[in-house]
Write a protein that binds this DNA or RNA. Structure first.
Lengths: 219, 219
DNA sequence: TATATTTTGTACTGATCGGTACTATATGAA
DNA sequence: TTCATATAGTACCGATCAGTACAAAATATA
């Protein structure tokens, strides 16, 4: 391994320096902040509904700057998807780390309704609002969105398979089926949020779901 | 009341004759069949993704014929929504007619997964695929879609309120909350279907959900 | 200071969008 | 036949779409 210095912080600094441009007119905007604004626009308007004018206005840059920094609309959305992944997966993974499976799933759902009713971002989930169907426009990025939804479900499934090994699931409860069931409910909550349901209302739905979920786990 | 004849069939015939054109070149296409094709296109491509070219091609008519018969894209979609309502609500209502609340909800979910995995139509639900967000394009019809989703939830809620009156719900189970919970799960199944889940897989998720649901109802 | 390099901003491209003007055509009524 | 009415089909409209050509401006290097 190449020695970039004495600590990993040095290594990070070196990597950053390597990716930073050294010559030419410096970029007048923060690429990360612009990407976050793009995330917000795609979240709010959907992939098709977000025009280049919507994006550049929110990002505070002009059109050629967007293309120079991000490629095109499709590649910008792919980066947005990656950013959304970074923002959502850690909290899912953290919830699922709880030793008790019931608490893990409870935390998962409670964190979920916090996120989909966060007033600082659009209601619901980007992965559901953003690209609901596959058509000529969305075809290039449709599968990536579905894959990310399936990726979240896999996180739940893997945790449930641990529980199944440990004998924590009730009789005739398949972890794959239960993961799909929880994911369905979670995604449905996102639609409820878009419908206008409040956090308190979603909380009561989660509590009802959890009462039923207990039957599927061993005491 | 005006007497249109001896029977309600005569009345229907009279109404039909009144709405049928009597003068001018006759329409060369079946309006109902064209509307059904439009439903299919909106279902498959979404409201934004369905272009007038997509619509006219599938409907087998040219552009001025569409505008003469349906007004414009927005009004056509409103008629499509009404058609979808006619196709979906009766089966929901029929399922909920069962005397036993558990059976009613079971039928509801089983009919639901039959419909959202029907190979003759696009996967999932038009009300979720068709108009996921509100933007400049979808604003005129967005609320109508949300209202139809809420209308389906109301059907469930009203049935559950009957059960609550009859003491068929477990302690601390509010019918409004339970209706929202069931609707969320049902909508999530629609997304699972779009993800590629099979009917058999959704059936197993429904069965797990029903096992939990039993706890929320009195034996 | 001179040069190479990159970003910025304006102004544009062809393609497609939803919607329509206009003419030809097909009917019922006179 | 003749006329009034309504649809069919072609060919078009202005607006907007994603994407880009080009030149001015701002930096590092030499």
């Amino acid at each position: 391994m190449i020695n970039y210095g004495q600590s990993s912080l040095d290594w990070l600094a070196t990597m950053k320096a390597m990716t930073e441009q050294k010559v030419g007119r410096p970029r007048a905007f923060d690429r990360d902040q612009a990407l976050f604004q793009a995330l917000n626009v795609f979240w709010r308007l959907g992939y098709e509904g977000a025009s280049l004018s919507d994006l550049t206005e929110a990002m505070g840059i002009n059109r050629p700057s967007l293309y120079a920094a991000f490629g095109n609309k499709e590649q910008l959305f792919r980066e947005v998807l990656a950013r959304y992944h970074e923002l959502s997966v850690p909290s899912i993974a953290m919830a699922l780390e709880h030793a008790e499976i019931y608490v893990a799933l409870e935390q998962l759902l409670r964190i979920n309704i916090r996120q989909i009713t966060n007033p600082n971002v659009p209601a619901g989930c980007l992965l559901i609002r953003g690209v609901p169907v596959c058509n000529d426009t969305t075809a290039p990025i449709y599968q990536a969105v579905v894959d990310q939804r399936l990726g979240q479900e896999s996180l739940i499934r893997e945790r449930l398979e641990q529980s199944a090994q440990a004998g924590e699931l009730a009789a005739n409860v398949d972890p794959v089926d239960l993961a799909r069931t929880i994911m369905a409910f979670s995604n449905g909550l996102s639609i409820q949020s878009v419908n206008g349901a409040t956090h308190a209302e979603l909380e009561r739905s989660v509590e009802l779901f959890l009462r039923g979920l207990k039957v599927l786990l061993v005491a």
